[in-house]
């Protein structure tokens, strides 16, 4: 065990040194005016613009960003949950025998979905279907279904076997074992991770605006293009507030579910 940990430490240290040696440092970390710009950007954080116009923009932009995040995540759940159950192989019985080709192909599909970043999906969809809000929803839903499916699969697999064996010995089918055993036992983690993905979804939906799909990201981009950092910070702080609200909501719901 100790040898394994030591080897892992060396591998991680080696990877860090390798990455340091493989980055182009010759241009320096900051360009000539970088420090002054960083100072100006940092200073603007303490004097965000709070005019009525900007607050109206926040309400409009945040509404669109949250709508993209919620619709994208809901579609990801519809795709990711069943795929996660299949990928976990738990419905194949305690030893998970048989049907492994299906489990393998679903796992491959989940990996393919999540390997492409949502921004790249957004570019592809915008190129394919134009600037439709549905493009934003699909761009979020595809990678998120891959991520949710994979995490759900791992959660379903990591459930302690003893209570499930008790259910089986009482005559429960694997479906019943899943609904009355596995699912309730991982519900808190499942909710916690789904809320975390909602948090990520809000961030991603903000970024999607950069390809022209509207929302808070578009407002941030416009403010940055105008070098109006105070206004940009106001929009960025709105994103931070939304993330904090979801974080708080998630922690309260998980506490209630855990009882």
């Amino acid at each position: 065990m100790f040898e394994g940990r030591r080897a892992l430490t060396f591998v991680l240290l080696g990877a860090f040194i390798w990455s340091l040696l493989n980055i182009e440092w010759s241009d320096g970390v900051l360009h000539a005016g970088g420090l002054a710009a960083a100072g100006e950007i940092g200073g603007s954080l303490f004097r965000p613009e709070l005019s009525l116009d900007v607050l109206g923009d926040i309400v409009e932009g945040a509404g669109r960003t949250v709508a993209y995040a919620v619709t994208g995540l809901s579609l990801a759940l519809v795709i990711g949950f069943p795929l996660g159950v299949i990928a976990s192989g738990v419905l194949n019985g305690p030893k998970g025998g048989g049907r492994w080709s299906m489990v393998g192909s679903v796992r491959f599909a989940l990996a393919a979905f999540r390997s492409v970043h949502e921004l790249v999906w957004a570019w592809l969809f915008v190129a394919a279907v134009g600037l439709s809000p549905i493009a934003a929803v699909l761009a979020l839903a595809i990678p998120y279904s891959g991520i949710l499916g994979r995490i759900y699969a791992e959660l379903f697999q990591d459930v302690p076997e003893a209570p499930l064996t008790a259910l089986r010995s009482a005559g429960a089918s694997e479906w019943r074992v899943f609904w009355y055993g596995r699912l309730p036992m991982v519900m808190s983690e499942l909710l916690g991770y789904t809320f975390y993905r909602l948090e990520c979804g809000i961030r991603s939906a903000t970024v999607l605006s950069f390809v022209g799909l509207g929302g808070l990201g578009f407002k941030i981009q416009t403010a940055l293009d105008d070098l109006d950092y105070a206004r940009a910070w106001t929009f960025i702080l709105a994103v931070v507030v939304m993330i904090l609200v979801v974080d708080w909501w998630s922690s309260v719901v998980r506490r209630r579910v855990q009882g």
């Binding site: 993209y68 600037l131 439709s132 809000p133």
Partner: peptide, 27 residues
């Protein structure tokens, strides 16, 4: 959930060419 889907579908309906159209399929 309901509000977000209604909003997104309504927004799509306002586009010059909706996502659910033959033009989208051709593109």
């Amino acid at each position: 959930l309901v509000g977000s889907w209604v909003f997104v579908l309504a927004l799509d309906g306002q586009q010059t060419s909706s996502f659910f159209s033959s033009e989208t399929f051709q593109r």
